[in-house]
Simulated scan of single mutants.
Amino acid sequence: MRILVSGATGIVGRFVVEHLLAQGHEVLAGVRAATHTLPFSRPVETTLLSLDPDATLPDFDGCDALVHAAFQHLPGRYRGGEGNDPDGFRRANLHGSVRLFEAAKHAGVRRCIFLSSRAVYGRQPDGILLTEDMTPAPESLYGIVKWEAEQALRALSGEDFVTASLRATGVYGLLSDLPHKWETLARDYLSGRPVEDRVGTEVHGDDLAAAILLLLTTDATLVSGRAFNASDLLMSHHDVLSELQQATACVHPLPKPLDKSLFHPMDTSRLRSLGWHPGGTERFRADIAALSEHLTDNR
């Protein structure tokens, strides 16, 4: 399969590209600017892709599918990623995305997977399980834009254009040349600086990429026009640092753990019913071991 991946050099995009390549697929990487250096393990064809609604559209020639992982935001921020330009944020991430969906359908692309977010659910009662059957109630502009893009994509679904939205949670995992999600946290802890606990749902980037490939290849009747939660672990900074403490024999005290029962796990039975099996605690522990080694090598 030949697959155009927008946002290919971003964190999620890199996991997706590497996973697709490892599974024998051909990748066309959508990038913002031409560059001679790409962060992939093997050569990849590129095409210029911008979310500016006035920009030239990418060439979908020969592509069977589109994975839309591009998102325009302030560095390191998704919620609040609009900064002082909410209109520009919406114009790029909603109108630019819908324009890309429409162009893909017009070009004869057969499948489109949109990287959405758990932010579409907004605030919910403490401890409630987030399911895809709930009515989204986003409160941040980030969540609103993701939800409106989901609806626009679903409206384009048809027999010749199979679509799905993947509501992803926080993404972790070590990538070369990029700081790990918990690297600053880990360095603060190992240096003896005070850290506070924080709870969230997490999924490894490669497991998220596997979910995307599953939605690209599963029977269309089980996928098209649907949303799927993608999450693996309800995780806290206390959990991360506890594992790091064991890997490094650090003697600094751990932060006081928060009550996880107040937070919102995500129901992933819909995605698991298609055959998705994320790495769970075993993968998390392996990743923290790799992070520990990375920190040791870069002292």
Rank of each mutant, 00 (worst) to 15 (best):
D85L: 10
P86Y: 10
P86I: 02
D87A: 14
D87T: 12
D87Y: 12
G88A: 10
G88D: 13
G88C: 08
F89M: 07
F89L: 09
F89K: 02
F89Q: 01
R90K: 14
R90E: 14
R90Y: 12
R91G: 05
A92R: 09
A92W: 01
N93Y: 05
N93M: 06
N93K: 08
L94A: 00
L94G: 00
H95Y: 15
H95F: 15
H95M: 11
G96E: 04
G96R: 02
S97V: 02
S97E: 11
S97F: 00
S97M: 04
V98G: 02
V98W: 05
R99H: 07
F101N: 00
A103R: 08
A103I: 01
A103E: 11
A104Y: 03
K105F: 02
H106I: 02
H106P: 00
A107N: 09
A107I: 11
G108S: 09
V109Q: 06
R111S: 06
C112W: 05
C112A: 15
C112I: 09
C112Y: 05
F114D: 00
F114K: 04
L115A: 14
L115G: 02
S116T: 01
S117F: 03
R118N: 10
R118E: 13
R118A: 12
R118L: 13
A119K: 06
A119N: 11
V120L: 09
V120F: 06
V120R: 00
Y121S: 10
Y121W: 13
Y121D: 01
Y121T: 03
G122D: 09
R123P: 09
R123Y: 08
Q124C: 04
Q124S: 05
Q124A: 08
Q124Y: 00
P125A: 08
P125Y: 09
P125V: 08
P125G: 07
P125W: 05
D126T: 06
D126F: 14
I128S: 15
L129M: 14
L129D: 03
L129P: 00
L129W: 12
L129C: 08
L130K: 00
L130D: 00
L130A: 01
T131S: 15
T131D: 11
T131E: 13
T131G: 14
E132P: 07
E132R: 11
E132W: 13
D133Q: 15
D133F: 07
D133A: 15
T135Y: 07
T135V: 15
T135R: 15
T135D: 15
P136I: 10
P136Y: 11
P136M: 12
P136K: 13
P136S: 13
A137Y: 06
A137T: 08
A137N: 15
P138N: 11
P138E: 09
E139I: 12
E139K: 14
S140R: 06
S140Y: 11
L141Q: 10
L141H: 10
L141Y: 13
Y142C: 01
Y142D: 01
G143Q: 03
I144D: 02
I144Y: 03
I144C: 08
V145D: 01
V145M: 04
V145L: 07
V145Q: 02
K146N: 02
K146Y: 07
W147K: 05
W147V: 01
W147E: 05
E148K: 03
E148H: 04
A149Q: 04
A149V: 09
A149R: 05
E150G: 06
E150F: 02
Q151E: 14
Q151Y: 05
Q151S: 12
Q151G: 05
A152Q: 08
A152G: 07
A152V: 09
L153Q: 09
R154F: 14
R154E: 10
A155Q: 14
L156K: 13
